[in-house]
Design a protein around this nucleic acid. Structure first.
Lengths: 337, 337
DNA sequence: GCGCAAATTGACAGCGCTGTCAATTGTGTC
DNA sequence: GACACAATTGACAGCGCTGTCAATTTGCGC
């Protein structure tokens, strides 16, 4: 049958409680005893019963990942974060549970409470766009549920992971500049989205640093969708002085720009360089493959969960760590014509 | 504090065991008693403690969803299935746990065993492409873990959900025929993939039924990727007699075909109709939006889990149900030129 | 109204672990 | 070596529920 803690205790010649202490990394166990117990556990391939642990103790060894996909189709972004969170949980012998949580309507508090009282997660990972929703944060604080966020807008005492999107955007534009481009356009994302603002700021920073005055005609509004990319590109191509490069605030819009370029008979990258942001799977599959900024979503999920787990363990107090971005230079960018 | 089963029992004036019986839908409880207990539960907002239930009883109220993404980036397909499985589990007050399980290497059995002995899932949902991997199925049978599959190739005593892809493909081609198209090309998917075969068979069936002899030049091999769609389309456009419509075996390839059409100066749908299969989020975002076959992945996940749950409950014996497909007719198809 | 089987209900132990607190052992001091 | 004190270990109850089996009630035929 199943190997129980009691069996390990007998094998190691100690009391069950001592095995429990070793299992939970508690202090006040002499080194020799600890080693002896660990050896017995190893030898017997002991696996603690999660239910028994959470029933008897105050911890559930459960992390819940909350998201709000807003009825949109499932996104790869969230799936990748989930993958990372899962990895971190696995490494620490925690379980993970995913929970969609629509924020619209006000019964979300009831549903959050149900989640908490049903499963007693030891902590919660929050993903965009619900990293900064105040009622949610308030409720979590009230219920004293520790939480970590992926890409929160709000900084401060938040635990989680961010990426310096502004710096990444700037680097992307600097790449275009280094290829000799001067008329570089930017397709902006949804206006009140933190990401849009940071990416636009990065674009401006790079242009200004290169001593290029901002040409308002080269900054067009988009909406993070393929269609909005097409529209934006059409506006740009209709200009007397067409840009030689377009930096779109995400890959979907960049794809739209490439599409529109085809429509106008512009060869990418020969006549026009195009680049995006996010490194969605699509970016790699496109033809020519899209130069873009890779946001390490999976790694960010992993780190957010890790921060949370460290915090739960009492080690460290939980921080907001920053991950490096990386430019994926592919075939959609080339020297200016 | 927490409302316990004992509290409900006291409030309803019965023994704890009787409340337990009502909670678990067991027989041998008189109707009046059952109603009284249910009312008390409702009134007190009783929520059973999952850990206590699984520790004391033989069930864990846990369903594990297994997948093998093969190190590929997270796919929306799996994310949608997961969404559906989650919904079904929620409705039945089951928890869900997701588990990536790489099949390469042979330690997957060890990892599967670890999953089973760690968490004792009551059942498992299998997703493509690991619905038909014999060693996995054997191990599940051996450990007596009930399982349901989404889109298994193998039929028989399998529990799960399928869609009639051949019929769907046929319907798609019949749509093109009804629009007056006669030279209809098909871009085939990866050869040994069940889906490729069914979709090709559907294409052939429709063409034959319309009395059109098969033109080998119109059936070109692809590989389910955007790039392979581009290549296939170039071959087709180079023909003396270009097709007026292309049915690609999935949306990614259809997108490639549309791209190549742009390259050749062909307007979709005016000069060329294009359609795909899967209804990925991309299909809707494309411009013009892609006519395609919708595979209700979310619903399939939900139904697979539902079948499994019914089976676990002892009701029904678990079946292989078939979901209806639906044609999403959008802007990429029009009457033949 | 009685006897009997079937239906309903309940008492109680125990699932595998941890929290509390008491018992034991080790350490340093004079 | 005796003492105070800290470090280590263990005994035991109990987390919230269900399985087993015994007790009680109900229904039914005569």
């Amino acid at each position: 049958m199943r190997v129980r803690l009691e069996d390990v205790a007998r094998a190691a010649g100690v009391s069950p409680k001592t095995v429990s202490r070793v299992l939970n990394d508690e202090p006040n166990v002499s080194d020799v005893t600890r080693q002896r117990v660990l050896a017995a556990m190893e030898r017997m391939d002991y696996r603690p019963h999660p239910s028994a642990r959470s029933l008897a103790g105050s911890r559930s060894f459960l992390i819940a990942m909350l998201y709000d996909n807003n009825d949109n189709p499932a996104s790869t972004y969230l799936a990748e974060i989930q993958d990372g969170v899962l990895e971190a949980c696995d490494d620490h012998r925690y379980s993970m549970m995913v929970r969609p949580l629509r924020m619209r309507g006000d019964d979300f508090i009831r549903r959050l409470d149900a989640l908490i009282s049903d499963h007693h997660p030891d902590g919660v990972v929050l993903t965009p766009p619900i990293t900064d929703y105040e009622p949610l944060l308030r409720q979590l604080r009230e219920r004293k549920v520790p939480h970590a966020s992926v890409s929160p807008v709000r900084r401060g005492d938040t635990i989680g992971v961010t990426m310096d999107e502004q710096k990444a955007a700037r680097a992307m534009v600097e790449l275009l500049l280094s290829l000799g481009h001067r008329r570089i356009a930017h397709v902006v994302g949804i206006a009140d989205h933190g990401s849009s603002q940071w990416r636009l700021a990065g674009y401006r920073e790079a242009m200004a640093a290169a001593g290029l005055p901002e040409d308002p005609a080269l900054v067009v509004q988009g909406a993070f969708t393929f269609g909005s990319g097409v529209e934006a590109a059409r506006q740009l191509f209709a200009l007397d002085q067409r840009p030689t490069a377009v930096f779109a605030a995400n890959d979907d819009m960049a794809t739209g720009v490439m599409w529109a370029a085809g429509e106008y008979g512009l060869k990418v990258p020969h006549d026009l360089s195009v680049c995006g942001f996010d490194d969605t799977p699509l970016a790699r599959q496109l033809w020519p493959a899209l130069t873009t900024v890779q946001q390490p979503s999976r790694e960010m999920g992993r780190l957010a969960a890790l921060q949370l787990l460290e915090f739960l363990r009492g080690r460290g107090h939980g921080q907001l760590v920053q991950v490096p971005f990386s430019l994926k230079v592919r075939e959609s960018t080339a020297v200016a014509p």
